[in-house]
Design a protein around this nucleic acid. Structure first.
Lengths: 234, 234
DNA sequence: TAGATTGTTAATCGATTAACAATC
DNA sequence: TAGATTGTTAATCGATTAACAATC
């Protein structure tokens, strides 16, 4: 849906902000652009054709000032006095985020989490193809997960190359995460999303993001404790 | 491990920064404190007794300036010229984060993700007890997941009260997330972690955090696209 | 005392908000 | 033309970094 173009070369740029060298978008804005994109695609599915910054902002849980500021980094795709055309804006945000060609994702770890990720419909529909899933356990290698068969992590490099995977998700124990991560990076992958509860080291030029469920709960605990704490208004 | 005290009342405060009304810690610092805590517990397990801001910062992937600034929000638990005592600092960070009593977590959704979360060892070891897991599918209700049996989501309110759950993790489809979230909040839970790819509305006073795997991949895509883009040095 | 390292202050940087001129 | 809403500018706010005085 978000994928409009599958040329594997550099994004050809829709009309866009002139032939500019595509200015950097602030990290906080990039994160929110993904929210706007989701909200726009929901509207699109509902058949809504136009939306104002005010209502798109509300659907995304941000202020309209923030939304307009964020969109200004992408370009100028609205009409004053009118609003935004849903499909048009959606396409331009997708292009700005690099979603105009499909990304091929390999998952390392076929435990509960790896399987959950492999079967998660949200990937396919957003231009991410899961092309391989690995495990080290010989009892698990060869099993079916969704459309795929579990590959042996011993064949990591071979399978990554054969499938052309350009993103890797690590869904494995902390103890082996750094080793696998090193191999993945050595195999040429430059985008890694890790669910392992450990600080991974990657060389310059490799993008690493981390999702940590225990951390999220700890942050909730901090706020919950403060809310309960005495000293404030009961 | 992180749990030192199980009194269910408000944190009794170790020596702490005087009887002060516990000043607010900036959100960015709270998130990083969880990283320091993990690194400290790793050091503790390795038998390391003392650590400098420089090396703790490196283990946590931040600068030492940032680390010392963050710790200054918690209190002043180091020794100039020497460093920090690992266990002592760990305890004080845990106390500041509200991890001195156990939190009881219920998971709604016993699909792959819910099961992965229920079995994730990182929770128990950090003071989070998973006390219940729910599903709507009658084929799944009654199944064993780790130590638990899957409860019927129809009994949500009853089971939440009986188990004393004070945190809920939503691991369910977007289509039912808001409904279940409303029920959870109505049952008195004020801390919710959602994995559903949708913007949930919660009333004032309820803490909601969101983890979104598709969003993480999209953010990676943005950076990967930029790295590949022409115009920069090849 | 000399060397080391914290805790804090001040300077820089980036993100958010508010307001409004441009313009459909 | 009058009403509405964008895109942008300027002001505010918070977070990060660097530097160093305090002190073990």
């Amino acid at each position: 849906m978000a994928s409009l173009d599958s040329t594997p070369q550099a994004v050809p740029d829709l009309p866009g902000p002139a032939g500019t060298a595509a200015k950097q978008i602030p990290p906080a804005a990039v994160a929110r652009l993904t929210l706007y994109l989701r909200a726009l695609n929901t509207l699109l599915a509902e058949g809504v054709e136009r939306v104002s910054s005010e209502s798109l902002a509300e659907a995304s849980g941000v202020s309209s000032a923030t939304l307009r500021k964020d969109l200004s980094h992408v370009g100028s795709y609205g009409t004053r006095g009118v609003g935004y055309e849903v499909q048009y804006l959606s396409r331009h945000i997708a292009a700005a985020l690099g979603l105009t060609h499909d990304w091929k994702v390999a998952i390392v770890g076929a435990g509960n989490l790896g399987k959950a990720l492999a079967r998660y419909g949200g990937f396919e529909s957003r231009g991410f193809d899961v092309v391989a899933i690995f495990d080290a356990d010989q009892m698990v290698v060869g099993n079916e997960v969704g459309w795929l068969r579990v590959s042996d992590v011993a064949d990591l490099e071979t399978v990554l190359h054969r499938t052309g995977a350009n993103m890797v998700v690590l869904a494995l124990p902390a103890s082996v995460a750094q080793d696998v991560c090193d191999r993945v990076v050595a195999a040429g992958v430059r985008s890694v999303l890790s669910f392992a509860p450990i600080m991974l080291q990657v060389p310059e030029g490799v993008n690493l993001r981390k999702v940590d469920m225990a951390t999220e709960l700890q942050i909730l605990a901090y706020h919950a404790q403060r809310a309960q704490a005495p000293g404030q208004t009961a």
